[in-house]
């Protein structure tokens, strides 16, 4: 099974590289932002497969952190680069942000 898992990992790496060509070519900044989302799913899958292939549980923690950080990267990007916070009036975007907080 380890060999199969390593094969899957190699394949995922290949799709990640292909997708990175699109990220590199852009053309818009938003297309490049998709890189973060890409690492949030393909990267997580790759790390999980490697964690199981090598029985290296610490990689699962890396996968978890990667998923969480990918959202933060996008959030930073949309507020600093594209400035969606300046697109709307300040108060309504503030409301929207607080409404999007997941609460349990």
């Amino acid at each position: 099974m380890t060999v199969v898992l390593l094969g899957v990992a190699a394949f995922l790496l290949l799709t990640l590289l292909l997708a990175l060509i699109r990220i590199w070519r852009g053309p818009e900044a938003a297309d490049r932002m998709l890189a973060s989302q890409l690492f949030g799913t393909t990267g997580v899958a790759l790390l999980l497969v490697l964690a199981y292939a090598h029985s290296w549980p610490a990689l699962m923690d890396v996968a978890l952190i990667l998923a969480v950080l990918s959202v933060l990267a996008v959030a930073a990007f949309v507020t600093r680069v594209v400035r969606i916070d300046r697109e709307d009036t300040a108060e309504e975007s503030g409301n929207a942000e607080s409404r999007e907080e997941p609460h349990v």
């Binding site: 989302q37 978890l64 997941p102």
Partner: peptide, 24 residues
Amino acid sequence: LIWVVALAASATSAHLVARAVRGN
């Protein structure tokens, strides 16, 4: 759990990027 976190992360990222694109 990691899968669920990745789902939530992906949905949130998708929404944020989409909102940024449309605002632009």
